[in-house]
């Protein structure tokens, strides 16, 4: 496969075309992004392809000067093909950098610019930005939670996914030898992004942008129905098999290992924080639960229940 000469970011944007308000909010956030070269690969799944095409033409008239639009239509409206839709998007993307944005989420204006600059300057294959979790009731944000990440921990990541789908970016030039690594397993109807991330993480360590990130909108009132719970169970089983497979075969490596940049003071400071964290009294007072590492997709249903 030839390398990408451009610096374009291709944003895979899956949608069923139902909530136009959310779609426009998400695209508006892409428009406001400070990164110049942006391609929005919209993958529409549904049976109103012509109507949706007209809607995309309307979006082009508004945002077309800033964003290149591509529309792919998956007219199979009977099955949930969210995983396949990612692969359709990737197949049609022309950018060197690949990321995903769901139609109900949005990004901070510097997310693409800062993360791509980091990936390029530090020569990483992929990276992710920090995430702000909005607890919502419809459009109304009830609460904001700063998700707090310690440095990337591969063991932690193997337990569950704490990297939201729209927070990571992959440099396709860094995975040229194995371009399929950014595609997902099409039979999955849940955790399809975790599949990609596990594959990536099994080969390359990520870099983290801790300054500006993405917004994950979590509906407080949303209840996962039985079908979705079953889908999660099936997906988790599949993912467990993948994890076992990856653990046996592959060892994680960096493209380049960055030089250690920690002074003795930083290390001592960290040790102090860790000791406070694990102390029985101060740990609970200073680090309440919501400041700890948040697991995202895996724990959605659990956290809804616990909030109640």
């Amino acid at each position: 496969m030839e390398s990408f000469e451009n610096n374009k970011v291709s944003i895979i944007f899956r949608t069923l075309g139902v909530n136009k308000k959310n779609i426009e909010r998400a695209i508006f956030s892409v428009f406001c992004s400070t990164y110049k070269e942006k391609e929005l690969v919209i993958v529409y799944q549904g049976n109103n392809g012509n109507e949706f095409e007209s809607y995309v033409d309307y979006l082009r008239t508004i945002y077309g000067n800033e964003i290149d639009f591509k529309l792919c239509i998956n007219s199979n409206y009977l099955e949930d093909q969210r995983a396949k839709n990612i692969n359709i998007g990737i197949n049609n993307a022309s950018g060197r950098f690949i990321c995903i944005l769901d139609d109900d989420d949005f990004i901070a204006s510097k997310h693409y610019e800062e993360l791509i600059n980091l990936i390029k300057s530090e020569k990483y294959a992929w990276g992710y930005s920090i995430c702000m979790r909005n607890i919502c009731d419809g459009d109304y944000i009830i609460k904001k939670e700063n998700t707090y990440y310690f440095d990337y921990d591969h063991k932690e990541f193997l337990i569950s996914n704490f990297i939201p789908i729209h927070s990571f970016i992959v440099d396709r030039n860094a995975v040229l030898l194995n371009p399929e690594i950014i595609k997902t397993e099409e039979s999955l109807t849940r955790l399809e992004d975790y599949f990609i991330l596990l594959n990536l993480a099994s080969k390359y360590n990520p870099i983290i942008n801790k300054k500006n990130g993405v917004f994950y909108n979590f509906q407080f009132t949303k209840e996962e129905d039985n079908k979705i719970c079953e889908e999660y169970i099936i997906a988790r089983k599949f993912i467990e098999t993948l994890k076992a497979d990856l653990n046996n075969k592959i060892k994680v490596k960096n493209i380049t290992i960055p030089k250690p940049n920690k002074s003795i003071f930083k290390i001592l400071y960290r040790l102090l924080i860790i000791s406070i964290y694990f102390s029985p009294f101060f740990g609970k007072k200073l680090f309440p639960k919501n400041r700890r590492v948040l697991k995202f997709v895996d724990d959605i249903s659990l956290s809804v229940k616990s909030k109640r």
Partner: peptide, 12 residues
């Protein structure tokens, strides 16, 4: 204000 809303209260 978008994407970071002002935290002050408004009635839903």
């Amino acid at each position: 204000q978008f994407p970071e809303e002002h935290p002050k209260f408004y009635d839903k």
